[in-house]
Design a protein around this nucleic acid. Sequence first.
RNA 1: GCCCGGGUGGCGGAAUUGGCAGACGCACGGGACUUAAAAUCCCGGGGCCGCAAGGCCGUGCGGGUUCGAUUCCCGCCCCGGGCACCA
Length: 914
Amino acid sequence: MKFSPKEIEEKWQKRWEEEKVFESKPDGRKKYYVLEMFPYPSGKIHMGHVRNYSIGDVIARFKRMAGYNVLHPMGWDAFGLPAENAAIKSGVHPREWTLSNIANMKEELKKLGFSYDWNREIATCQPDYYRWNQWIFLKMLEKGIAYRSKAPVNWCPSCQTVLANEQVDDEGRCWRCGTIVETREIDSWFLKITDYAEELLKDLELLKGHWPEPVITMQKNWIGKSVGAEVEFEVPEKGEKIRVFTTRPDTLFGVTYVVLAPEHPLTLKLAEGTPQEEEVKAFVEKMRRTEKRKRSTGELPKEGVFTGVYAVHPLTGERIPVYTANFVLMDYGTGAVMSVPAHDQRDFEFAKKYGLPVKEVITPEGEELKAEEMEEAYTQPGVLVNSGKFTGLKSEKAKEEITKELERLGKGRKSVQYRLRDWNISRQRYWGTPIPVIHCPKCGIVPVPEEELPVKLPENAPLTGEGRSPLARVPEFVNVKCPKCGGEAERDTDTMDTFFDSSWYFLRYCSPKEESLPFKPEEASYYMVVDQYIGGIEHAVLHLLYSRFFTKVLRDLGLFKEPEDGHQREFFKRGEPFQNLLTQGMVNKRWISVKNLLKALGLTEESTVGELIKALTGKEVKEEETIGSLMRKHHITVGDNAILLISTEEVRKFIEGAPEEVLKPYEEKFGEVSKMSKSKLNIVNPSEMVEKYGADATRLYVLFAAPPEAEFEWKTEGIEGAYRFLRRVFQFATENLESLKGEHSGELSKEGKELRRKTHQTLKKVGEELSERFKFNTAIAAIMELFNQITSFKPKTEGDRGALKEAVEKLIVMLYPFAPHTAEELWELTGHGELLTKTPWPEVDEEALKKEEVEIPVQVNGKVRAVISVPAGATEEDVREIALREPKVQKAVEGKEIVKFIYRPGRIVNLVVR
RNA sequence: GCCCGGGUGGCGGAAUUGGCAGACGCACGGGACUUAAAAUCCCGGGGCCGCAAGGCCGUGCGGGUUCGAUUCCCGCCCCGGGCACCA
């Protein structure tokens, strides 16, 4: 029988849909919620998606067989800039663009045969989804979690929009378009995530062992908690106080100057009327023009000016100069620092540059430190010196004591700072959730009444990519009556950051059609917490932190009904949405740039096309055009994939075979491996793979190539291997249908027993991998091993035929989570009436695992010299005797004294000889 | 600079508690089938020496603990990622 994946796949996808086997409703069974990060509908499924969803599908299908009520939903993160950019470029409405992309991608997902409950599909751009964004926002507004503030924000001049700090990369570029970000002051809506900083940090403890360690660390760093003290420095001649934050109150006596951020409100105020006023003004102005990124990365040399005034040290009463400098940032701590040059490297460098005093107040235990001899700051803890009554204390103790003293004097207090900033959710864009508030000249900010939700996006906003929000240019949207006073008022014309949409979508899946609340408390109580979440590491902070924040907020709003029992109760109580997280690695592909190809061939852009052809094929042709000129003609740059160059008509006509094949040897040797991306043209289109090899082979390969969390390099040969394996299994089963369908009983031969043992060993191994370790690559390897044993097995007895039948049957079942279509087909062909999808995962027969004889390696001085076979119940004495009888062992110990005999039952023998 | 993760054949990777290093697959070599090729099937393989039996070496490098180390400890090198004038 011929193996035709296409037919098989269509057949079973249809059957599964007809029998509604992937639909889930709350029932008496234990639930299992497996979730993959929903995709942005960019147009096509890419390999990263395939990998993500294949991992999820293996888990979902296995858990279903293991008896769980599995919730496995899919939806679309459908708001966002690309749709709007497409509209600007080609005039197509963002809704149309998005919905047609969704339709296309859904088709692709269906062809891959993922076991989703499509009844629960959601798209965040639909009013019945985003109305709940608005509802949640209003609840947050009520609770004071959402607030309005004028704040310096990151403005991307290209996207014409405000970006969150998280959306600006470390080079100060927009995360989407790469344009350098500017700073602007804008009225915006913020969410007070900082109120939850402590809880978000503390609950990371609960996630340990369930989430990958790097993700936990990244979140921890992102929240960035520092414990220290706030200290006040008075400036008597101006009647002002400078508040600073420090993590080292123990170094307070070493303060020799104070520094304000240039943007600090006191900077200009203090300098007023001093001889330094003009200089300070010029400095502040200069800093305003300096890129924020450069300021905050430390790549600029330290620079500052004296403000002309002195502050008073809170404990010693000394007069110390006040400076303003570029290295102090307004948006961390209080925007001012106390400088302790002896014990802080930045302060040290600044002090040396401007000739400010260095005063040592901490020494390493048992050592002396001289300020004048220091070449860098001593930043470790130690023992206090020159610190009045605190001299002699250790740093830790001194921190406490000095803080207490400040509190007693009313000049300071204990303080905790976080790096985490509140989340700015306002976007001056069209394709997002309208913010449901009305600005009334009389009443101020008025929330849209709940019964008027959703505030729908108008269809006809002009999308030009310029100016502020497109919604501001739709009068019938903007102009409304104030719900409070009935007077003329205006709607807010901003839309929400799309991270808002994705911060709670996993809850909506629990009740996707609910009309009176974002989700039904009983349903969320049944399905939540997500048992297994799977997605890319790129969401380690943003999406995952926001989702944790939202879940905690929704819990505090009283939207959950706490479950009576269950292992996840603790996660539920703490508002943690995802119990286990798996971050899958990237799918990479080898490619070669024009630059590297030319280098490998020993050519330059000045070489002729003729020389290129000769180097590639050995053919002599007369083509005098230079490669550089050809590249300019086709807009190819040296960083582009060389495939572009080879595919130009001028080159293509001289080479035989596909351009990919011509380049392959050069890619192997001189190419590089990077993430599949459009710009590098190193993309493998999943749908083409499904077309050519089938969904099962594509999925099997992606899962077999590497463990899920590791990166892997896509190789065409690999998917061919997966295809061959499936075909061999299919062929073997269909060629042996008679014995696989029949009833067999009787005695087993030795080989028959071994086959049974292998079958149950594999079952045990695969079961463990699927439920605990998620190392799908080794699970598949084990299945392949079993298959290799099956094909070399020659049944001798009727009982043997039974063992063979059992082995193949179990193999089909084990194959199911990875290659479900092929497995279903074989299940049916081997005479099973019920869907394999509905078949329970088989039990391991512990009896079959037992061995009569065990193979034990025998080492002499740690080197393996022989392998002996001993009866399973052999005593240490028996084993010793068998080992010593072994000729190879005898040879190795000949003429030597056996000092020690080590036996680890069932594992190893080691003879120590001298 | 700080914090994670990693380094094993030609390649992807395996070794679950310190116990036979290299499972499984890919690529490769040899053979069978074929007029031939492809496909398929069988066999082979870490390196060095050897006709072979066998021996020696081998998990980034150097040391240590142990009967025994890819695994544990100390010191270093390299690669990938995150954070970073954060007070």
